[in-house]
Design a protein around this nucleic acid. Sequence first.
DNA 1: CAGTGGTCTAGACCACTGA
DNA 2: CAGTGGTCTAGACCACTGA
Lengths: 240, 240
Amino acid sequence: MSLPLHEKIRSEIEADILTGVRTPGSRLPTEHDLMQHYGCSRMTVSKALSALAGGGLIERRKRAGSFVARPKAHSMMLDIPDLEQEIVQRGQRYRFELSERTIVPPGTPQAREAGLAEDGELLMIAGVHFADDVPLACESRLVSLAAVPEMAAQPFDDDSPGAWLLKHVPWTEAETRIASVAASTGVAAQLKLSVGAPCLFVERRTWRGSEGITQVRQHFIGSAYSLVARFGPAKRAPGS
Amino acid sequence: MSLPLHEKIRSEIEADILTGVRTPGSRLPTEHDLMQHYGCSRMTVSKALSALAGGGLIERRKRAGSFVARPKAHSMMLDIPDLEQEIVQRGQRYRFELSERTIVPPGTPQAREAGLAEDGELLMIAGVHFADDVPLACESRLVSLAAVPEMAAQPFDDDSPGAWLLKHVPWTEAETRIASVAASTGVAAQLKLSVGAPCLFVERRTWRGSEGITQVRQHFIGSAYSLVARFGPAKRAPGS
DNA sequence: CAGTGGTCTAGACCACTGA
DNA sequence: CAGTGGTCTAGACCACTGA
């Protein structure tokens, strides 16, 4: 094994927890005990325990010690992929077709609802994502021009608005809501569906610090699209 | 500020990245430079940089240095909450009604498809989740009795099968697929919907190590339920 | 109030790798 | 091959808090 020692300690304790040798609520040896057991310094033990605590497997309490955490709710990483990338990976051709592009003046109800800059102009962009010329999803997006003035000059013939934003504007905070809705007449027309067909609806807002950047609402054809979230060893231990 | 020094260093560099003072691809000062700038030891600087790297904000390359990462795809934490807990928090009464409970013999196509133990019995459980006696979701679940023998004896009048599993069986790996589907006749009957109504479909498989524990398929009434995923400062920096 | 984890120091040796 | 990050040591002082 060429594993670093802190990683070895971490994985041994992890294995004990997962196999049930250490049960939820039970106390781990103290850092001092682990130092002696592994014959290493306290920093090394601490690094291993910090990683386990960061991963939610243990809880560390001052004066009391470290304890195996009780299992918690399902909390997993959801990758909301770049549509273009995903379509190309499937071996299909990607195209974004702009259907609308408007400047929204400050203070409209639409702008207020999106939670973006109250006193700045917004850029409204709507369009359809195609895979091999078959519509897969449509989106309607508001972008704060106060936060991203360069956006106004973009043609979006190479990148979709989402891909452009991802490349050019770092975000720090995002919230995504996922629901299942029936296709409205407008959505049905854009996606060539019958009205009422099930669509996966994704609404996302992103911020940079406290400044709202964009809000987007996407409808995916239900029969053609799903999202996958994972949690597991692939997600390496934090801090390591 | 009573923040630990490593946390202060981390947040200062984070702020520089988020405000654009440090741009994607640019090189950070070396650990040695940061030591001198903050007047601290290298371990402290390293802890700050490790946290940033764990959070995906920077990349560390040997010999070359540390670099501001280029923005990546949207990757966020999705909490798939315990339905009971969520319903109770809304101020409603929760009830799980068992509608089916069968032992599935080894080797059936159903068992093989679920990716659970090939050579062991499975427990099949189906039922409906009610909020104030209104159906909100229905689920169909397979549980490996080889992995969780105690499950066979559970009445599920206190806890739903999912809540029971969460409390008693730690899982290490999980995969969730989210889609929008039209209600089948069976689902529509259980949820008192019209056939074809949009439903949020969640399929989850969990493992403990390499051993499959359970597979569950849930249909949520589309008009009544949505999932929310977040990414942001609330998620504390890993390893810290 | 004693034991625990949280933080930090001032070193050290190493593997790696790009200039 | 020199500079970088990765790891580790053997200490230290501190804040916290439950026995």
